[in-house]
Design a binder for these strands. Structure first.
Lengths: 247, 247
DNA sequence: CGTAAGGTTGAATTCGATCAAACCAGGTGG
DNA sequence: CCACCTGGTTTGATCGAATTCAACCTTACG
């Protein structure tokens, strides 16, 4: 019997062991489930909000625009993630959130989450930890964009998404869902669409990945990790992920 | 009568109003004060730690190395900041921390911080908020590095440091301490040292800044903000900072 | 003094952005 | 059923920005 909250619990358990009581508290959070069309804005920059949402199905992302209209996508969110947990303690959003596919989200009122936190320091801990892992991913992306070549950036992000999907059980035969346009991918790694296209072709040419119809298949994990200079430590999964980690 | 913990309190109050009781709890945290020579490593990547530290004097930074030896400095920390608060909930560090000048730091045991948090959800809230603001700064830097021109990146970081120093009362006559080498600055904004040098000269040539002897003076804040596409909202200061914000 | 660290400058080269256009598949409507 | 449109991908040519490499300068310091 699968409840919407299950995917969230699966994610939380992937980063920390939870007591039965804490799991019950979290499972008891009221959650309103809604489905959105591809490209719908969930929260806009500058907005205030009374809920946090978790991704149940599909892919979401945050975004920021610069003064001259460029867009950065600082992060992507897979099922089980809680993108705007930050709104729990920061009054206005410094970034917007939107779904990058048709997606189903679960909304939980701030009030209920605060109550759950004050009932258990363990619940506080795991949610805090979620936000800290988000920050760790930002640091890694900063390093990725700031220091690595474009091909390494791409390989790195493909590895990361693999491990994150795997942590919630959504990798099937080395394949996972990656329904991004090359434009969006470019906005995520700080390069132009045209250049993304060429470098993706390079990765395909080297037989490292197969990417079509919004699904990415890793053909050679060892080499992809090597090219992407990838080490999953920054994802802070409690049990290191099987495939990607074994060296 | 000035205690070491005062600067921390000043910082916390700049982002959230604190009840008297919460201030007392924080002021009561045991803090061991130590001074370090320029360039000392405080925590290394992969390490575990039993303390968090706050910067009392000087400048600290985090750093990550890529496989081929490039360094990224994902963040800088001014007095009042608590760089490794993340260690409270993540077992190993995914980044190193080092002081970039001679610096004085205050170390607080995790145990004591956890105790303070479980005594008051307000204390939990403000510390959590500190980590969320760190994350917000990462997002902004990501946007900065990913989307803005080099001159904008530099102007942006100069603005940010101004506002952050000002929030803890350390700006004096539009001047603040910025004892970075151009190399370090390059590692922070993802460009080469040589290019940093040329772009700094461009900013000097435009009479926007004066930077010498480790101190940066803003000569024309309006234009610097304009060039840097800077908006301090992401710093989430509770009372918007006077100078930088007035448009 | 001599050395080291940081800053500055020039020239050559490479990488990636930009511009422009073609291509391709799926969906729509006449 | 075909023509058209749209969103996304692919390709080529050109241009500019930033890296690299190397040298030189200044200052602080033992």
């Amino acid at each position: 019997m699968s409840e919407p909250v299950d995917i969230l619990l699966r994610r939380l358990k992937s980063i920390m062991s939870l007591s039965d009581r804490d799991q019950e508290i979290i499972a008891g959070l009221p959650m309103e489930v809604k489905t959105f069309a591809d490209g719908t804005d969930i929260v806009r920059e500058g907005q205030r909000t009374e809920h946090c949402f978790t991704v149940l199905e599909g892919l979401a992302g945050s975004y920021k625009f610069t003064g001259d209209g460029n867009r950065q996508i600082p992060s992507l969110y897979v099922p089980g993630d809680v993108p705007d947990l930050t709104s729990l303690h920061l009054s206005h959003m410094d970034t917007g959130y939107r779904v990058l596919t048709r997606a189903t989200l679960g909304f939980m009122p701030h009030r209920a989450i605060h109550e759950a936190c004050s009932m258990s320091y363990g619940v506080t801990g795991v949610l805090w930890r979620v936000t800290l892992i988000d920050a760790a991913i930002f640091r890694e992306w900063l390093t990725n964009i700031g220091q690595r070549s474009t091909i390494a950036r791409l390989a790195h992000i493909f590895c990361e998404m693999y491990v994150r999907y795997e942590a919630v059980g959504l990798v099937d035969g080395d394949t996972y869902s990656l329904p991004l346009t090359q434009q969006e991918l470019g906005d995520a790694i700080g390069t132009s669409t045209v250049h993304v296209n060429r470098v993706v072709q390079e990765l395909r040419g080297r037989k490292l990945i197969h990417w079509a119809d919004g699904r990415l298949k890793v053909l050679n994990m060892m080499d992809l990790i090597e090219v992407g200079d990838f080490d999953p430590a920054y994802l802070h999964l409690s049990h290191a992920s099987p495939k990607a980690v074994s060296e």
